[in-house]
Amino acid sequence: GPIILQTYRAIADYAKSSSTEMALATGDVVDVVEKGESGWWFCQMKTKRGWVPASYLEPLDSPDEAEDPEPNYAGEPYVTIKAYTALLEDELTLQEGENIEVIHKLLDGWWVIRKDDVTGYFPSIYLQKAGQDI
């Protein structure tokens, strides 16, 4: 059958920071082609296409719909594959190769994780399921 693309609206202006990204103006309506766990979604708008941050988009049809999966307070084991230094107070600073537990996989790509009973946000793009080869 035909591919039905989901339509989203930009809730804020976004200035792209690399050539594969697409800039957004508040109110822009885009078709989402691919949703990545990293929080980058590949979108097209008229003749433009590129990656945009998922958190800058809301569903056009059902803006109140919560799409994020439920938190898993038991935690899912992951390993950091790149170091990250927290920029905001609610983020965690971790080195590469640290074992952590993922509690909440948010669609914006910033997951709630736990390390030694401390919780905070961490970029999912720097995480990999424990026990897998890089």
């Binding site: 809730i11 804020a12 976004y14 920071s17 690399s18 594969t20 990204e21 508040t26 082609v33 691919e34 990545g36 990293s38 929080g39 980058w40 590949f42 590129g50 990656w51 941050p53 998922a54 958190s55 800058y56 809301e58 990250y84 905001l88 914006d108 790509g109 910033w110 946000y121 970029p123 999912s124 793009i125 720097y126």
Partner: peptide
């Protein structure tokens, strides 16, 4: 073809998204 996504983390949600009641 779809290009590779950026290798850096996306920005944190904009203020507009945080204002929404949860």
């Amino acid at each position: 073809t779809i290009k590779q996504p950026p290798s850096n983390p996306p920005p944190r949600p904009p203020v507009e998204a945080r204002k929404k009641p949860s």
